[in-house]
Nucleic acid binder design. Structure first.
Lengths: 156, 156
DNA sequence: TCCAATAGTTCGGCCGTCGAAAGAATAACG
DNA sequence: CGTTATTCTTTCGACGGCCGAACTATTGGA
């Protein structure tokens, strides 16, 4: 008999602890959640193709355009992000992360990565394959429930 | 060779998706993150021993006393929480969740639980045991890194 | 050239949060 | 008992993030 409730509880606990970690890190850096999220999105975008724009950032963060401007003002003031107008279409603004932001990201992830690596030494590659499948399935489940919640009648 | 980075990415993705789910649910219910978290803490407290008090809630949520009062005002106004003075020590206030809050919690978790149950049918009990160990280890790692971050010098 | 569409920013207001101080109840001590 | 200290919670004034609406700048067509 599968003890699913224990797994659910563990998942919830993990997200809570992760949340707290992010919160504490933000406090240390004098940055708010939204700014950290924005930074992550901008850095991810560089990895996958073309640079980020304020409007796409707004969509990714579920934020209004004006709030996004504020976020970028803060990030630019703190030296983590630079705004540069696109020379071909001068309406558009391209967002680039600075080296300072990269360092910040490293400071964020390195300790956690190290701890994870140590914590996961006890698992075989086969185990990890199972775990990866589990995580993917859980992510998909969350996404699909959210999609159903977002538009119970009309898929927008 | 273990592909830990894929696992890290999956974990991060899971927390992001969970976050969005909570966010969307909050929008639907016209409730903010903090209020939902507070409700969860209060309900958890009932499960594990004595009732919640505003000050303990403030500590759990990392919120000031005044902000906690606001949260409780909102939750009381929306009929999710009731305040009752402790008859033995009338300075203290006991927080109780209403049936409405229980329903809300059910509306929150039931769809997710169902989706998880379906998504996890493909895993054997042995798999689930491995997964549970993995989640626990990851939680512990997160907690320990956070603890190190909180007090690099002095354990408070 | 004029007009609609697109991309971002600025402005005014709302509301959640904080720190400080007040309010309410209890405990300790003469 | 009464006075003072302590504990728990709430109120008050201020700050700051976020939103919607109006505004500026740029582009692409009629």
């Amino acid at each position: 008999m599968a003890d699913n409730s224990a797994l659910v509880r563990l998942l919830r606990q993990l997200t809570v602890e992760t949340d707290r970690f992010v919160e504490l890190f933000g406090e240390k850096q004098r940055m708010h959640r939204t700014d950290l999220n924005a930074l992550a999105v901008i850095m991810d975008a560089r990895w996958s193709g073309e640079p980020m724009s304020p409007s796409r950032l707004a969509e990714a963060l579920h934020l209004s355009a004006s709030a996004t401007t504020s976020v970028l003002d803060r990030l630019e003031a703190s030296g983590h992000v630079e705004r540069a107008r696109n020379p071909h279409d001068r309406r558009k603004v391209e967002l680039r992360t600075s080296d300072k932001a990269l360092e910040l990201g490293r400071g964020f992830f390195q300790p956690l990565d190290g701890a994870f690596t140590r914590a996961w030494e006890q698992f075989s590659d086969a185990d990890k394959e199972v775990i990866a499948r589990f995580l993917s399935a859980s992510i998909d489940a969350t996404v699909s429930v959210r999609a159903g919640l977002a538009s119970p009648a009309r898929p927008e």
